[in-house]
Design a binder for these strands. Structure first.
Ligand SMILES: [Mn+2]
Ligand SMILES: [Mn+2]
Ligand SMILES: [Zn+2]
Ligand SMILES: [Zn+2]
Lengths: 151, 151
DNA sequence: CGTGAAGTGCAATCCAGTTGCATGAAACAC
DNA sequence: GTGTTTCATGCAACTGGATTGCACTTCACG
């Protein structure tokens, strides 16, 4: 039983819900992975768990505040472990070449001035670009970009 | 021939590409609509155009800088007309009840400090919450939220 | 006009995510 | 412990946005 699994069990015990293997597996995967991962990423870590059960476990974790769910640059959900109390509103960076998502530390909350009457629930900031390793290579991976010469 | 269509034709003439009806229709729809719209929204405006052709026209417009493509809170693409030169990096607001997307004006570009070696291409800021009209009603539309009582 | 390059339409396919329903496992009371 | 209730799981089917392959049309240019 890994360290992540112990922590997971402990966190689950603090909720009003049941401690099931699916939730344990999902949460430990999130904890050990450490960064925002897609359902597919996570399912790779736990191939024996049913796809749908994983979705449901992750969504439940998000409801409980133990995970947060964001949309990545390709419109796919990404999940990451989060601390129940403090809401997890830091920006993320996604590399357009290797698609890895990185959390960005930030001092002082990002704020945007909304028009009158609007109420804010959450804010999602996603920076796209090249990560350190991909910056060096610079040639896009997969999906070859078709050159288009100006007139 | 509407005003939007005239502007559209004019903008298309500035590119190296062909001026086709699909592109004209797509761009005028974007221009007259005025806010970030989904493919489905836009197809409603031009039901006779083929779905796929609309996708391709929109993607082409995005490549040309005449439109910008963003992911909304539900992971669906949204397109909006944009000025070719100035890149279109303002925040957006999406109402969690009526799903309408609103552009948010901002003075001074949003900036985030990236880790060393990372290169930024674009930044997407999406605020979720309730728009003015929905703030008053406050009961979510569709997708009923199930209450969950703490222990 | 004729020819090549670019754009279109349609059908098929992909893929993340959801839903319905029968079965199984936690929690809790006894 | 056993029984009962409640909630979670597994499987299959389904949804809907988006993409791909390919034949056909249209446009620009000689
Ligand atoms: Mn993060
Ligand atoms: Mn906008
Ligand atoms: Zn990278
Ligand atoms: Zn609204």
């Amino acid at each position: 039983m890994s360290a992540a699994e112990d922590v997971a069990r402990d966190l689950l015990a603090r909720t009003s819900g049941r401690i099931t293997t699916a939730r344990l597996t999902a949460l430990s995967a999130l904890l050990s992975l450490g960064r925002a991962a897609t359902h597919t990423d996570l399912h790779r870590q736990a191939p024996d768990m049913d796809r749908v059960s994983l979705y449901r476990a992750l969504d439940w974790l998000a409801e409980q505040g133990l995970a947060s769910r964001i949309t990545d640059a390709d419109g796919v959900w990404r999940y990451e472990a989060s601390v129940p109390g403090a809401d997890h509103h830091h920006p993320h960076f996604q590399c357009s070449r290797c698609h890895q998502t990185t959390c960005i530390e930030i001092e002082g909350g990002l704020t945007v001035r909304l028009p009158a009457g609007f109420t804010q629930e959450k804010i999602e900031v996603l920076v796209k670009g090249l990560c350190r390793t991909c910056s060096l290579v610079s040639v896009p991976l997969g999906k070859t970009t078709k050159a288009r010469r100006p007139a």
